[in-house]
């Protein structure tokens, strides 16, 4: 049986996902992905007439149950420190991260 997710496709996905995997993990994950895709392909067996639209939420949000849209009123959040205190590295109120790779080619 042909594998839909080849090692090359898999590498590309891993890159997009910003994941570093060891070889054992990679092998397991790729096999599972291909197995899941077999199940997913069952969807192709379903006749889908054009008039069948997508459903983003199962429950239809009729106007009567739709919450009112938020008014533009400021509610200050006084406790910003407890948010910042979760950051792994901060300096004078900034969150610190390693440098971003340079994009200049010249």
């Amino acid at each position: 049986m042909t594998e839909e997710i080849t090692p090359e496709t898999f590498e590309h996905l891993v890159h997009l996902a910003a994941l570093e995997l060891n070889a054992e993990e990679a092998q397991y994950l790729r096999r599972q992905l291909n197995n899941q895709l077999k199940a997913i392909h069952e969807l192709e067996a379903i006749p889908l007439p054009d008039e069948v639209a997508i459903t983003s939420h199962g429950v239809p949000y009729t106007p009567s149950i739709t919450p009112p849209i938020r008014n533009d009123e400021w509610l200050p959040n006084s406790d910003t420190k407890s948010i910042l205190s979760q950051a792994p590295d901060t300096d004078e109120g900034y969150i610190v991260v390693p440098d971003i790779p340079h994009t200049d080619l010249d």
């Binding site: 996902a17 910003a18 994941l19 570093e20 397991y28 390693p98 440098d99 790779p101």
Partner: peptide, 16 residues
């Protein structure tokens, strides 16, 4: 760099 931080962080801390 930052990209390596992303990859290692996510690679090490997410389970399968």
């Amino acid at each position: 760099d930052l990209n390596e931080m992303y990859r290692k962080t996510r690679g090490q801390a997410f389970g399968v």
